[in-house]
Design a binder for these strands. Structure first.
Lengths: 216, 216
DNA sequence: TAGATTGTTAATCGATTAACAATC
DNA sequence: TAGATTGTTAATCGATTAACAATC
């Protein structure tokens, strides 16, 4: 009862609010109304107010929203107010790119381990963190509290590794392998798929559609 | 006239259909009904049929869909049936990761140039392609037909480079910089934003929400 | 022909937008 | 107090699902 489910559409917009509020804060803006924010972000003021009121009333009639307060509250909703230990499995270019991100989500993400399948890279370092063999995963996960695992490895290994992760207590996976992991794991495991090819195909679709329109 | 606008939701599902059909094809499946595909992909059969019928009738009553034919037709809709020349601006780890992708979108994407701002990497090679200075962009774009530009560079340079690209004829940008480029460029420029931080925040949101539920 | 399954219309559901009373 | 702007309810719009006649 209570606790109506927040829709995916709303959740997907929260990071963007957080980002814009952060930029406003950097530019020294203290308060903002839903109307002003709506012009900035090109969404309706109604949507902003509806979205925020899923989580509570953060504004004040006649005044608007305090930028810092609202940014911080959205940060809390997104879980940015506490630390998350993360490991990366697969240290190809993409894995390295993620390992090198500075200030991931405002510093709340900490990379505590790197793993790879390829024998030849095991023992080498990325940014002072040694790359371990995936065979060490179970023992590593027993010794360390890890919340999030990132999969940046080929599709063919992804499912097997994901199952090992889940068996050893991981319940959140950020998946870059080109397969829908969520359909292959227990339902309570949180999987966020990033399919870059899908994104690029949406781009080529739009290119194609625009070119065909031109021809008419 | 006619040509009702295809919704974003539909377009975002097409790459996934394409992927599943490709896998079915690889496994030797010749035909499939919307019902079977719906069980496989965990979507409703109704949705599959509605989605496809935005583009035409690809099936046959009493038979279903021919896997290869449907896959190819969706490929055409996504623009995978002809080549797209692409350049990458920003050759950090992420840029390199994309430059090294094999068989991008079934071979329809060809990387024809790499560019960077950092003097020290100019002249070095990634996979036989020399990294050029961004200063060469205008002349390069005059000499080569390029359809898509990928931005894998820091946010602070992204807008300026994007404007140079657009001035020199690029009208499709795959943007990995953490800013909403589409709001800063002419409306007819196609921008596909990939905000990895946003994706990760959706993951931490769900983690957070799950943990709070547990506490109750 | 009988059975299966599409293409498509109609019904439902959910998300977005508009409106406005509450209130700072 | 008057003006501004929220929080929230109501109206609209669009997307998803259900149903079924058409047809292979």
């Amino acid at each position: 009862m209570g606790e109506r489910q927040i829709s995916k559409a709303v959740i997907s917009r929260l990071p963007r609010y957080h980002r814009y509020l952060g930029e406003l804060l950097n530019s020294g803006t203290e308060r903002i109304s839903s109307g002003e924010l709506s012009r900035l972000m090109k969404v309706t003021a109604s949507q902003i107010r509806q979205d925020l009121n899923n989580f509570g009333g953060f504004g004040q009639q006649g005044y608007g929203y305090n930028v810092r307060y609202l940014r911080d509250e959205i940060g809390k909703i997104l879980g940015l107010d506490h630390d998350h230990a993360m490991i990366i499995i697969g240290t190809g270019h993409l894995g390295k790119a993620l390992a090198n991100y500075e200030n991931f989500n405002r510093g709340s993400i900490h990379i505590v381990g790197l793993f790879d399948i390829r024998k030849e890279v095991i023992g080498t370092k990325v940014r002072n963190t040694e790359i371990r063999s995936v065979e060490e995963l179970p023992s590593f996960l027993k010794e360390h509290e890890v919340e999030i695992a990132v999969l940046t490895l080929p599709k063919k290994n992804a499912t097997e590794i994901a199952q090992i992760l889940v068996e050893n207590g991981i319940n959140a996976i950020w998946n870059f392998a080109y397969t829908d992991l969520n359909l292959q794991l227990p339902e309570d495991v949180i999987v966020e798929n990033v399919h870059l090819s899908d994104s690029l195909m949406q781009l080529t679709y739009r290119l194609n559609a625009a070119q065909q329109k031109e021809e008419n």
